[in-house]
Design a protein around this nucleic acid. Structure first.
Lengths: 221, 221
DNA sequence: TAGATTGTTAATCGATTAACAATC
DNA sequence: TAGATTGTTAATCGATTAACAATC
């Protein structure tokens, strides 16, 4: 699918943002845009946008620019948002519930098929049509439904055991909200960490050192 | 405070992770560690760790390594986690409530002083001892309490207006969970974006292209 | 055709890694 | 003292920016 075999993570991480901005443009009935115009809206350089897109193919037209709708489509298919990878959430606490309610899994390439928790009071209840199961039924469930990714929102202490069980069950990606660091232990599983504490601490540094002491794009997350 | 004036954001973003790992080591009663040992635990190079730390000063001792407790303290004070910057949350939906309940603001340099929402049913109630106020009282509240950072967890449509009001009220940092991109409009305010959708799309790409097509550290968030 | 803007190559810049002298 | 490990400089690597020929 990709033109070049190795596309750097820096490029990949910008794709969802392009996708978002292009979606906004489509919504506003802007049908074409140049790399220069897009770069100004996004706070990037036009060079970088053209360089990024050309990792995957020539989506533009000389003298014209890019068609917003078709470019968004291309980026969407590079990211795989048309897929229906089965996903589960492990941990139905505050964060798990917020994710289950707020994240539009369907439009991001996934299909939320189950939620797991230890709390007997909520087992059997549903969040947005998805049932909360007892964590003890994790193995049985996975052997049937074969989820590909797991959203980890358990407390830190529970994370190592859960991760180990899921790794054995063939999970290929972790969306990790727990404080436990999975990357070193599972190098062959895709791990996307969302360490909210780390993010807040970074903000703490930035406001303490406001006025340009930090170099680089402040807004990389 | 810092040895060199300009420390790159790449370095800053690693500091909270060092802080976390050092905290774990202290908890496990490991009182000293070499850059080599730490690098293996964290999946980095020893060179990078030494290079990073020496942006701020020589915290180690030749032939010995680093004292875990004192190094954690140094990093904590670089990040500013001992501060008490007043913070507010705007938006008491699922995400806002999850953050109010789960994030340990006190240990991250902040003090959560207020939560705001538009829903009359929850105005006046509390989350963890913090009262939910009517968004219409935002100006009055801010002129009294002078919050420095705002956690934005409103729906996308409400974000531009709220951001504008907060910018006028002297907010110096946004922890932005809304889909609205603040960075371009407010270049002088520190913005830390947590675009969960972008993060999930990145994971989607990674599992689709598993097996090494992506280069770079998979776990940068 | 002339103007605009891409795709792509070359130049620059910054971040990471390697090497080693300093020193505990 | 000898061994270990830092702090720091130099080398490498990768990412971003600039430039421009190709072409719509």
């Amino acid at each position: 699918m990709s033109k070049h075999e190795h596309v750097s993570l820096s490029v990949i991480r910008r794709l969802p943002r392009y996708y978002r901005f292009l979606g906004d443009l489509v919504k506003s009935s802007v049908s074409r845009i140049s790399s220069r115009e897009l770069s100004q809206r996004m706070g990037l350089t036009a060079s970088q946008i053209r360089q990024d897109l050309n990792c995957f193919g020539g989506f533009g037209q000389q003298g014209y620019g890019y068609n917003t709708r078709s470019l968004q489509g291309e980026i969407g298919s590079i990211l795989g948002v048309g897929g229906e990878y089965p996903a589960i959430i492990v941990g139905a606490g505050n964060i798990g519930r917020a994710i289950a309610s707020n994240i539009d899994f369907g439009n991001m390439g996934f299909n939320l098929v189950g939620i797991f928790d230890v709390n007997p009071e909520i087992i059997g209840t549903k969040i947005k049509d998805v049932t909360i199961h007892d964590i003890s039924s994790l193995e049985e469930f996975c052997k049937k439904k074969h989820p590909m990714i797991a959203v980890l929102t358990t407390p830190r202490d529970a994370a190592p055991d859960i991760a180990e069980r899921l790794a054995k069950l063939g999970i290929v990606g972790f969306w990790n909200f727990s404080h436990y660091d999975l990357s070193v232990k599972y190098p062959n599983i895709a791990v996307e960490n969302v360490h909210l504490g780390d993010s807040l601490m970074t903000l703490c540094y930035m406001i303490k050192n406001i006025g340009g002491e930090v170099t680089g794009d402040t807004n990389n997350v």
